[in-house]
């Protein structure tokens, strides 16, 4: 019996020590899920979700205080990837997806104050003090922060124009089921 007690004690102490060391040296800093969710968000800290930037939004998501549909600029695609990461099915439900927009500078109204540049989190605006500014639509994800910043109301959010390169066929209309046969029967 002594052998059994002894060996179990030794085993317990050794494994306990190992676990203690592992918990100290292999500890995960912060919340892993939070970091992963942050990686999926656009990262421009626009604040449209109501949280202070993408990090805070990721924290809220991880804690279950926010919906996967929280990110307007990310749209359906981001919502779907977030839902997949959170491990539940994505259901757009009542939320209709807004059409993606990009900012557009009305050059006639631009006074070259360069305030919009300072607000843009993705360096999507080109310009210099006292020069007309313009938006690089490829680098604009439509967070809309620049719109409220413009003192002359010269920035507008516009839908992205469809070109020959981006056009594609619409979805076929739901099947027109031929009901005549049924009616006759």
């Amino acid at each position: 019996m002594l052998t059994a007690v002894g060996s179990l004690t030794v085993l317990g102490i050794t494994l306990g020590t190992l676990l203690g060391i592992a918990a100290k040296y292999l500890a995960v800093q912060g919340d892993a899920l939070e970091a992963e969710l942050e990686g999926l968000l656009p990262g421009s800290n626009c604040g449209q979700c109501g949280f202070a930037g993408c990090k805070a939004a990721a924290a809220a998501l991880a804690a279950g205080n926010a919906q996967v549909t929280l990110c307007p600029p990310g749209g359906r695609a981001v919502a779907a990837t977030l839902a997949a990461k959170m491990g539940h099915a994505f259901d757009a439900g009542g939320t209709a997806e807004a059409e993606p927009l990009v900012a557009f500078v009305h050059e006639g109204r631009c006074i070259g104050c360069s305030r919009c540049i300072q607000k843009c989190s993705s360096d999507g605006i080109v310009g210099a003090p006292k020069q007309i500014h313009t938006v690089l639509s490829d680098a604009c994800h439509g967070c809309g922060k620049c719109v409220s910043e413009c003192p002359t109301e010269g920035i507008e959010m516009m839908p992205i124009p469809v070109t020959l390169a981006t056009w594609h066929w619409h979805k076929p209309a739901p099947q027109a089921i031929d009901t005549r046969a049924k009616a006759e029967a």
Partner: peptide, 14 residues
Amino acid sequence: RKRDRIKRLAVARA
């Protein structure tokens, strides 16, 4: 691809 590019830009700016 656009989202990835914008994320890169946002991180670079930060």
